[in-house]
Design a protein around this nucleic acid. Structure first.
Length: 436
DNA sequence: TGGTCGTTGGATAT
DNA sequence: ATATCCAACGACCA
């Protein structure tokens, strides 16, 4: 084909950086010109890092300050949609359609409920129009006020999968929001506004790009070293939606069936798996999300797991989401739980968030026996969360003492000490029961 | 070096 | 609905 120039979008993820590097080197050796501009994000991550003296900013506010208005935001760049030129002469090759699931080697699974979100650019633009048609909704948007239990009509735009796959340009999205904000008298501001959400995306892309080993705890300079518990049983219970906490399990079922949950719902299950209750390594939860989310994005997924596990960005480990009361605030009747966990449908609202407290007569009437039809809680939240706080306290102390550089030995020794304490507590508990 | 502040906790008091 | 406490962290900035 006599290729003389190769154009591809800049990708900040380490996996693609390595591939793109090889491609660029090969092209250089064969005198093929390469053009790889930044266009997936609003800003150039390298540019922000340069402005900050070589290190990525670690707080949202400092990022926003460094970032400023995007260079193209005030220009009259069209917000129209453009198309790629049609395919020219490609000789004997042909352009084929998107392969089907069967052609990719998978079977179509007989699911009772699948994701309501369809892929593609046409769908993305339709969704964007629908979300932005309500100017008042856009200008009053405050992310933390959204309802995580809303599923018939989600509290957010659900544009994340389209942004991730490039069905929707973040810059086009930015321009559209900017247009609305100029049209109205008052509007919310970052970090809570709709525009602020796009800046969060760029913030996390920047930190992820500028931090070696961003996707793991070891050798990650911004990640607290914490002796997470190795417990595959607890991990499996969480992953398979059988923790015994309906709010947590319903969210995990939504993840499995829809590949999408509200941001705050993700917070609840991530906190529960890591620093809040189970004390399982955030990398394990990250892997599950990466596999099951339709919007899983390397930079953003890892950043949020670092955040929720109090390993980086956020350190107030005393603030733990209650697997009982948090969901109840939004959905006292438990409609969300009843939808995703139909086995609990007959449980009255008084017990829907804590079915193990329901008297046997109530369980029988609801045709749902706890321990048989739906599991008993894998841990007791009040006890587990207190232990987690204590363990985080000790781990933080170790990180402070070692100036952030914790050796494998030190971490292992703390892990042993914690396990010993746990065993001692259990002995104490058994003794108490015997005395009774 | 010390003060400020951080998108989204929970329980309790008013 | 709003304030206060709980117990307390660290990045940033003056």
């Amino acid at each position: 084909w006599n290729v003389r120039k190769l154009c591809f979008e800049f990708d900040s993820e380490p996996y693609y950086q390595a591939i793109d590097d090889k491609v660029k080197k090969f092209c250089a050796s064969t005198s093929v010109e390469t053009f790889s501009p930044v266009s997936h994000t609003i800003y150039d991550p390298a540019d922000i890092i340069r402005k900050n003296g070589g290190k990525p900013p670690l707080t949202y506010q400092s990022f926003v300050k460094l970032a400023g208005e995007p260079s193209w935001a005030s220009s009259s760049v069209s917000t129209g949609v453009t198309w790629l030129p049609t395919v020219g002469n490609i000789g004997r090759c042909s352009v084929i359609d998107v392969p089907s699931i069967e052609e990719l080697g998978y079977e179509e699974l007989p699911e009772d409920e699948t994701t309501p979100f369809k892929g593609g650019e046409t769908e993305a633009l339709k969704r964007l129009r629908t979300s932005l048609s309500d100017q008042e909704w856009v200008s009053k948007f405050e992310k933390p006020k959204g309802d995580p239990s809303a599923f018939l009509s989600p509290a957010t735009t659900v544009l994340s999968p389209y942004l991730k796959f490039g069905c929707l340009s973040s810059r086009y999205f930015y321009k559209c929001i900017q247009g609305i904000q100029r049209n109205v008298k008052r509007h919310t501001s970052p970090p809570v506004s709709l525009l602020g959400q796009l800046l969060w995306r760029d913030f996390f892309y920047t930190v992820a790009f500028g931090t070696p080993n961003f996707d793991r705890m070891k050798e990650n300079r911004i990640c607290k070293q914490i002796p997470w518990r190795n417990d595959d049983e607890l991990l499996a219970a969480w992953r398979e939606a059988r923790t015994g906490y309906p709010w947590i399990d319903a969210i995990m079922v939504q993840l499995r069936k829809w590949g999408w949950m509200h941001h705050l719902a993700r917070h609840c299950v991530a906190c529960f798996l890591t620093r809040g209750d189970l004390f399982v390594h955030w990398e394990k939860g990250r892997d599950v999300f990466e596999r099951l989310l339709i919007d899983s994005d390397w930079s953003i997924n890892n950043a949020n797991w670092l955040w929720l596990s109090c390993s980086s960005f956020f350190y107030q480990y005393n603030r733990i989401y209650s697997p009982i009361s948090f969901g109840k605030k939004y959905d006292p009747n438990g409609n969300y739980i009843r939808h995703f966990l139909p086995v609990l449908k007959g449980i009255p609202k008084e017990y829907i968030y804590e079915p193990w407290r329901a008297p046997m007569s109530v369980q029988v009437k609801a045709k749902c026996i706890i321990g048989k039809d739906y599991p008993k809680p894998v841990i007791e939240h009040d006890v587990a969360s207190k232990e987690c706080k204590q363990m985080l306290h000790q781990a933080y102390e170790l990180n402070r003492r070692s100036n952030g550089i914790v050796s494998v030995e030190e971490l292992e020794s703390l892990r042993r000490r914690m396990e010993d304490e746990e065993d001692a507590d259990q002995q104490q508990c058994l003794k108490g029961k015997r005395l009774k």
